[in-house]
């Protein structure tokens, strides 16, 4: 894959394949921790980190261990366990060596194991690789990183929208989650406008 194609993969994963607003991965943290800007930033930074590291680990496991041994049906089971173990490992390493980063992101890490965005990205990059053989390890990593950045952009944008919602006068039965979902629909509309842009780049 050429450098321009890799840039295309990166932009597509942020804009046209936005994991929250177009693919509906990670809706729980999107609705749960997007109330304040700083928690939204912390959560998405932690998700990005885990996405890239998980893809870096699960891609070789699948390609060089599971596929040659005809065990690709174990993908789901192996990936979720690898991700769960990896999150624990990252937490331990961070606690020991990167104390300030741990203080900022540590509380979000246990939540990420059951975040479908992480499991989703590790599987989607493999599906893409199966369709297009030139979509290799590097493209997978870039796709994972872009997915994390897209997650961050959606979270931060939405945190801004929700801060405005706090002071709005909302009909009683719409209060809380329903109005949040309706505003998410409007934010998702804005991302529809990007469809086609990244395809031209590719």
């Amino acid at each position: 894959m050429s450098a321009a194609q890799l840039v295309g993969v990166f932009l597509a994963s942020i804009l046209t394949e936005n994991y929250i607003l177009c693919k509906f991965f990670g809706i729980c943290p999107f609705l749960g921790v997007s109330k304040k800007l700083d928690t939204a930033l912390g959560m998405s930074a932690a998700v990005t980190l885990v996405m890239v590291i998980s893809t870096a680990v699960t891609w070789p496991i699948y390609t060089y261990l599971l596929v040659p041994n005809d065990m690709d049906y174990l993908r789901t089971l192996v990936f979720i366990l690898v991700i769960a173990g990896l999150v624990q490992l990252i937490e331990i390493v961070m606690k020991r060596y990167l104390t300030s980063l741990y203080r900022a992101l540590g509380i979000y890490l246990p939540l990420i194991t059951t975040n479908c965005a992480v499991l989703g990205v590790t599987m989607l990059v493999l599906d893409k690789g199966a369709e297009d053989p030139s979509f290799g390890y590097l493209a997978a990593l870039i796709n994972a990183f872009g997915a994390g950045i897209g997650f961050l952009i959606a979270m931060v944008m939405f945190a801004g929208v929700r801060e405005r919602l706090e002071s709005a006068d909302i009909p009683e039965s719409l209060r809380g989650l329903p109005i949040t979902l309706v505003s998410a629909a409007l934010v998702a509309c804005s991302f529809l406008g990007f469809s086609g842009i990244a395809d031209k780049l590719l």
């Binding site: 609705l31 749960g32 921790v33 109330k35 928690t39 959560m43 509380i107 989650l177």
Partner: peptide, 11 residues
């Protein structure tokens, strides 16, 4: 962990 990280979806 979620509640200590941020407010839940319902709060």
């Amino acid at each position: 962990a979620c509640k200590s990280g941020g407010e839940g979806a319902h709060s």
